[in-house]
Amino acid sequence: MDKTVAGLPEAIAGIEDGMAVMIGGFGGAGAPIELIHALIDRFRATGSPKNLTVINNNAGNGRIGIAAMIDGGMVAKMVCSFPRSSDPRAFTEKYLAGEIGLELVPQGTLAERIRAGGAGIPAFYTPTTYGTDLAKGKPVAEFEGRNYVQERWLKADVALIKAELADPHGNLTYRKAARNFSPLMAMAAATTIVQAARIVAAGEIEPEHVVTPGIFVDRVVEVRDAAQEEALIRAGVEYA
């Protein structure tokens, strides 16, 4: 069993126009910047992939990562809970110009829809959004005297994930709050692609400490000294 690949271009192979791409991270924590920038490099060189649906909690910040994908015209639609950030220009400009779609999903519902997608549960009921504009058109049912809104699973063609440790089986650990959506996205995508700060031999991650079991992971690439998105933003870095 060896899911490791040699470099970023091999890691992102097969991501095509029109795909749904889940990208881990909450703000800058857990954003797989090197995988995203490798995808941007391919788009700049070949014109593909474009017309992507990107699923992330946010909609990019500054001029790097998801924001740079949006700036470059790779993204047709964002599925997110909070398309604002300290520098939301990229998404805001395209959204107000009608050049990008938005599916706004409450944060907990977004997480649970992704979890459901990975767990083979097509729909579930949640109290979240009952009686609000975001519940319009969705089935409502009463359970034990309270009203709940039906939400559907969310799946993707690809997930891009940032991990701390990985082994060749794809077992993963995460760093601090960089975990956020990543274990869920790893379950919900047909192909899960991971950049890890360090790839260790099988057995070196204590089985008790594995957060994402390797069954949910397809490819792992080692990216030592990976950039941290928030640190790049604060340093004024642009991926241009």
Binding site: Y95, L104, Q107
Partner: peptide, 14 residues
């Protein structure tokens, strides 16, 4: 403008 909800609608339940 740009709508943004975050976790607000989840937090009011539970």
């Amino acid at each position: 403008g740009v709508p943004a909800v975050g976790g607000a609608m989840d937090l009011v339940h539970g």
